[in-house]
Structures are given as C-alpha cells and as structure tokens.
Design a protein around this nucleic acid. Sequence first.
DNA 1: TTGAAAGCGTTACCAG
DNA 2: CTGGTAACGCTTTCAA
Lengths: 338, 338
Amino acid sequence: MKDIARDLGVSVVTVSKVLRNHEDISEATRKRVLDRVKELDYTPNLAARGLVTGKTYLVGLVVPDLLHSFFAQVAKSLSRALLKKGYCLIILTSEEDAELEAHEINRLLARRLDALVIASSTTNPTVFERIQRQGLPLVLIDRNLPELHANYVGTDDEAIGLLATEHLIEIGCKRIAHLRGPENSPGTGRLKGYQIALAKHKLKSLPGYVSKPRSVDVQSRESGADLMRQLLALNPRPDGVFCYNDPMAIGAIHAILDAGLRVPGDIAVIGSGNLHYDSELRIPLSSIDQQTDIIGERAGRLTLSLLESKTHPRSKTIIIQPQLVVRASTERTRRPNR
Amino acid sequence: MKDIARDLGVSVVTVSKVLRNHEDISEATRKRVLDRVKELDYTPNLAARGLVTGKTYLVGLVVPDLLHSFFAQVAKSLSRALLKKGYCLIILTSEEDAELEAHEINRLLARRLDALVIASSTTNPTVFERIQRQGLPLVLIDRNLPELHANYVGTDDEAIGLLATEHLIEIGCKRIAHLRGPENSPGTGRLKGYQIALAKHKLKSLPGYVSKPRSVDVQSRESGADLMRQLLALNPRPDGVFCYNDPMAIGAIHAILDAGLRVPGDIAVIGSGNLHYDSELRIPLSSIDQQTDIIGERAGRLTLSLLESKTHPRSKTIIIQPQLVVRASTERTRRPNR
DNA sequence: TTGAAAGCGTTACCAG
DNA sequence: CTGGTAACGCTTTCAA
C-alpha cells in the first residue's frame, strides 16, 4: 500500500480509502489507484486491518468429527451462510474428546475470532464460561449446555425419541429397546422421548433394554453392533430398536443380520439423522430427519445477527422440529413396487 | 500485554519474551509474569504476532465438496497433521465451480496464509500462477494441473482405471463401459487406465460405452443414475461398468436395479474411493481404495516441509498406489457365508 | 537479564 | 476531496 501511494504521489490513507470504497475520493484518483492495484495484483492484508478494526472476519467451528455426514453437512451450510457476508470458517475437530476440544478452543481464542460455533464434546461448561467472559459471541449447535444459557441451535431431541419410538409402536413392536447416545443433551433428550413414548402407550422398557456405549467415540457403527449383540442375548429379545444415530443403527442392523435374524421382520430398526446415504443401504434405514442443513443455516444467521448487533443481545434458542422418514428397516407390510 | 507489563513494573518486551519461552529471563520474573497471565486468562494475539513475524499459522484448504466423504476424510487427516505443528485449517468449498473457487482463493490470499492446499475444480492454471508468483507454498491434491509443475499429492489414476477394469475382465465381463468423470487429471487418468486395460486384453469399448456427465457437479449420484440409464438403452448393453467414483457407482446400481436387472449377475459395477459406507450399501460396492487418509497426511507433511524450509524447494509429486477392494457388486461366484 | 525504539500493514480521526 | 498522525498488539534489534 505504501508502495502504491509512493508510486502515485498520493497518501497511504487515500489508497486505503479507495480500497474500501470510501465516498470522498475523486473518480480520477480512484481510477489511478485501482489501476495500479490491478497492475501489482495487490490485496489488502486482512490481518493488519483486523488489528485496527478489531474484526477478523473469522468464525471458528468445532465439531466432533467431520467424517460424520451430519457435521459435514452442518459445516457446509454454515460456511455458505457466513461466506456471503465475508466471514471464513476455521474448522477444528474434537474427536469427541473434551480435553482436545478445550485445547482447540484455546487455540482459536488466540486468533481473536469474531465468533465461535460449537457442537461440544464436553458436558463441563467452564471453558465456555471463559469464552462468554471474553465477550466472544458463542453459538452452540446440536448439543446444548442448559446451565450456560448460551445461544443454541439444534433439533428437538425429545421429539426425535418420541417420533421414532411411536413409529415402532405403530408398526406393532411390543419390546422396544434403545441404543442410547452419550450423556449430553441429544443423548438424554432422545432417551427421554423414548421413555415418554413407552409410558404413553403403556409399554415397559425391560431390564437391559436401554443400552449405552462403553465409551463415546467416533466409531458409532462399531459400538452400535456391539450393543446390539448384547441385546440379542437377552430373553426376550427386542422386536424394535431405536438408535441414537444412523451410524449406530447401521451397526445394529449388521449385528442383527449376522445373527441370522431379519430386519424388519424380526427386529425393526430406526436411527436418527437421515444421512444422505441412508436410502442406499443394504436395508434402507428409517430415520428421523433433523434438517441438518437448516441447522447450519440458522446457526449461520444467528451468528451473523450477533456479529452485527453492537449490543449483547439475549441468548436465543432455536429448536428445529424433526421429521419421520420411513424406509425398509421399519416397513412391516410388503413394500409397493417402486 | 501492556497492562500486564504495567501491573508488574516490567517492560512489554519482557512479557513478550516470557510468553515465547525466551531464554534470558530470570525465573523470578518469568513466574511473576506467568502468574499474572493466568490470573487475567490472557492469550497473546496471533494476528498481531503474525503481522510482525510474517507467519499466520493458517493454511487454506479448498475442496469441491465437504459432504463427499473423500474430501471430508482428506480434510480430517490434513487438519490433524497440521495441527500438531500449530497450524489451523481454513476450509472453503468450491462446489465444483471454477469461478467460485477463484473467488475463494482470492479471499484466502488476503489473509496471508502460510500455505494453500487445493483439490481444484478448474483446469485453468492462471489463478495458481498468481499464487506461485506471490511465493505462497501451494500443494495440489487429488487433481493435478501438470503444466503448473506444482506440488501434488494424489492417487495413481491410471492405476485406478487399470485395476478396476482388469478386475471386471477377470470376473468375465466382455462388454465393459465407463462412466467417466470430469475433464481433469483424475477423470482423464482413470479413463486412460480403462482404455489401456481393454487394449491389453484385446477388448473393445463399443460406441457410447464411455459416458460423460453433462455437467460436473456435486450430485454424482444422480448423474451416475442418468448415465447408466442411457447405457442400458444401448444394444448390446454392457455387462460391466467402471464408474469414476463411488457416488456415481451407487447411482448406476440404482438405475440397473430399477430396470429390473441384477448386480452383479447381469451387470457388475465397480467404483473408486472406497468410502466408509461402501460395505453397508444395498449391494456392497466393489471399489478402488485411494488411501484417502494417507493423501491428507502426506499432503500435510509436504506442506509442513515447505513451511519449514526457508528455500523454495523443487516441486514434489507424491503418487499413492490404489488397491482393489472386492465386494458383492462384482462377486460373480456365490459369496461364502461370512 | 532487561528494555527503549522502531516497525509490521492497516485504519480512525480530524484538520486542511 | 486529501492526508498527517496516532494507534492496533505484537516482535525485533540492539544497547544498557
């Protein structure tokens, strides 16, 4: 910028103004500057600009696992929403590890991001209190930490449990098991929905019918298969299973078929997430659609509104209603020929 | 930092040195500073530091689509490799749109990244020449632009075509079609491998047997189905199909089954990429494994080596050898009971 | 072992 | 419409 100013015999300030489309610049000067800028193929340094304006146009996103289509989808739609306004996304993955997550958040904090969006792997709010203390706009997605009273965008998890379980009940399942998720808001919310559905229809959850992965990790598929094998050993064995998410459901189906049983004939299976490949699976998977792209998009809009309002607005909670998607894994009647 | 210095009656320089673990600081001072830092929960501003050191510890990644598991996997392993050395990844998606890609690259350039990793959606090297002119370390992945002589990490695409096609030949296919990919290095490389395999075994590619999507976009699955429907209308119709990637293969299988034919009985299908859900599909998909995580990891290591060497080293090309993975979609003999 | 001064590339503020 | 000056938060260099 200094060079351009010198070359043209104008001040640095003038160049700066031209580059920001500032009003008070004569057409002549503007053109001269722009020409030279093009010639040199020059782009102003955003970091330097950020230093003085206090805005980095950088938003952090922390998710447990990018390979999980759910989070990839969220990242994609979030990125798109923010990009329109010039914000870039720094994406880090926590691998479902609370300690690693805290580490990465600290890393991001050092970059003086404009905002942070997190699907957190921790249930411990301390890191986040720190973020809030720093006045950094924070949006939680998918997994809420109620004590925090932070901005949150996610699905109605109780509704997921309710929808899935009632669907199983409707197709005639009597002994419905639940492969539950981790001890966070989606995990407990979906479990609660399951319990409410059972209670409503006067069904009982037999001992051992709510099964929980030993450790929460990225390998949902495997833990789904493991848990399902345990369920199969029970007497009586379940005739319907609601799984915390689709990868677990895929693992569960695997275990059922391996045991020589049929899906949905012997055991109906439903998951949650409605991943893009659900319909192409060995047994197309019934699922609860969480409108994943809407989550990303709404989170993006919420973040932008935080970024643009100068005051600290009250925390917002956006709950998205899930929808049942029925496929072969819970179709007890013959499928019509499509 | 200024505050800390004032509070403690030392200079800003001293604080700065402590924070960078500089040698010449007495234990006493160091401790005093660190204590105060902890008290205030202070983290040095990386952007400001970057301004003077010229390093942002930011690496850009541009991929066509994060929802495609291939790129999600690459992003994940790349991110992991870079994170170890303190580099963060800014991820942007080009949606297979060359213009958008150029836009995003410009955006990234303004941030003065330390390096750029790209799976490019363009075949036009001009944007990249600009990057190279700026002296910004550039690593191409998955898709090469040979004229550019840039650093490149990718799979041996000819070998992919060869492996896949020869496998189809081995299981007895006589009329092998190819749903080809875009006009970039993987697209043409895999086509070439297909052609070499046919020539080697004295087979011919009948008219219309190499089929190309109208437009290259993110919806590989749909275009795979479309192209396959066209192939089915040919006489004679193929008895084996090698698809550019797995989503296309999934679409192709869809079309075949919808037409009332069997896979692999009537038509064997093989894709490429070996996505994590291939084994769970309606018809488990034979594929060519591209060692996706290795690509990301090697790209990461290459990037780091560029970042750490002060000279501009010669461009490196890292070619990873693909491997055949056989599943039901090309199993002509009865499957053993697993 | 410590610190003063200069500067990284940019913008805010205000005077001309 | 134009530009000088100070400042953003940090590091580098070199002298004390």
